[in-house]
Design a protein around this nucleic acid. Sequence first.
DNA 1: TGTACATCAGTGAACGCGCGTTCACTGATGTAC
DNA 2: TGTACATCAGTGAACGCGCGTTCACTGATGTAC
Lengths: 194, 194
Amino acid sequence: MRYAKGHKTTTRKGIIEVASKRFRKEGVEGVGIAALMSDAGLTHGGFYAHFDSKEELFQEAMAHALDQTQEKLTRLAEADGGGLEAMIRDYLEPWHRRCPERGCAAASLGADIARYSRPTRVVFEKKLEGLIALIARHLPRGDRHMRRRVAIAIFGTMMGTLQLARAVADRRLSDQILESGVEAALNLARGPET
Amino acid sequence: MRYAKGHKTTTRKGIIEVASKRFRKEGVEGVGIAALMSDAGLTHGGFYAHFDSKEELFQEAMAHALDQTQEKLTRLAEADGGGLEAMIRDYLEPWHRRCPERGCAAASLGADIARYSRPTRVVFEKKLEGLIALIARHLPRGDRHMRRRVAIAIFGTMMGTLQLARAVADRRLSDQILESGVEAALNLARGPET
DNA sequence: TGTACATCAGTGAACGCGCGTTCACTGATGTAC
DNA sequence: TGTACATCAGTGAACGCGCGTTCACTGATGTAC
């Protein structure tokens, strides 16, 4: 073989890495195969040796992005003085509004995912379950079912407020949205009996 | 004039009406000018006599959709036994998951709006302020600033959880997401001291 | 060791297609005289 | 009242373009004998 063993796998990972960033930043329709491949240092013709279709790449890229988010939030939660509050605060920091390409794919692609095929939504669902479980694990109180319900709502609040913060034009309002989101997510985490 | 006075305005409104539905259902990139015009009973060539660009139509269609949502929520809130709870429950009912074309444009187009030009985001922002004020007006407690902050978070929660409910594949999980969203939004509305 | 052939990741021209946008035109009606 | 012309909402062919996808090919290296 004229390429080192594992070379193709490396290339494939590179394409996924690039796609996961650009899809989050520009949207799935906002970036084409040719641009992605060129970003990965290749020409567009080789694409179909790695993926069956753009949608298959999208699934992989979305999964990769959500894994990264899961890892980052896990790291934050487990750090000293971390916990759920660290996750919530980091998710709703200005860096996240500014850098969708390094952020949560649910927030940057959520409205689109709803319109994709079932297999794509299954992939999303699996990763979402991971995030929900992570949040649930760090809730201070409640039985398993209640923690799960609260975790779902906290993630919905985080994702929704981040998206709103990105969608408005005024910086001040956007800051206010992020702050409101933090406050609300923390309130939900504390539970109604505080 | 060979058309009744006000005819052009009527046609324009018809195009906006059609666009506002199809954009919400299929996404902005998911439907073309020709399809929209044909849906409105016209041919595509006439489009630019009504709008400067697809983006201008998008702004109008989004504004129209958000006005409809504002009106519906206002009606619900003002009905007997309505209030904030009626708004929250209706927003997170299964009909809304199933029918984005009749629903909230923030939920169906949120991720996209963040990527559009500033003028488009200004339009969104104005309509969002209306929704925030509506929710704030129906909160049971708090001063002006606190009501506003809570209202923002409630809307973020509603929008975020609806989007999640649409993005997952499993019906049961989707139902659970809607229920969690209702519960959380009601908790936020009640405030921390319940 | 040397030659012939197989492998296969990546190349780049080409495909049909639908997009947003432009524009010369139509044709029904209004106005001028 | 009749004729000529102006108006203008809507028509449909055409534009260049970029898209996702296909495919015959390249060329460096491995293997067979």
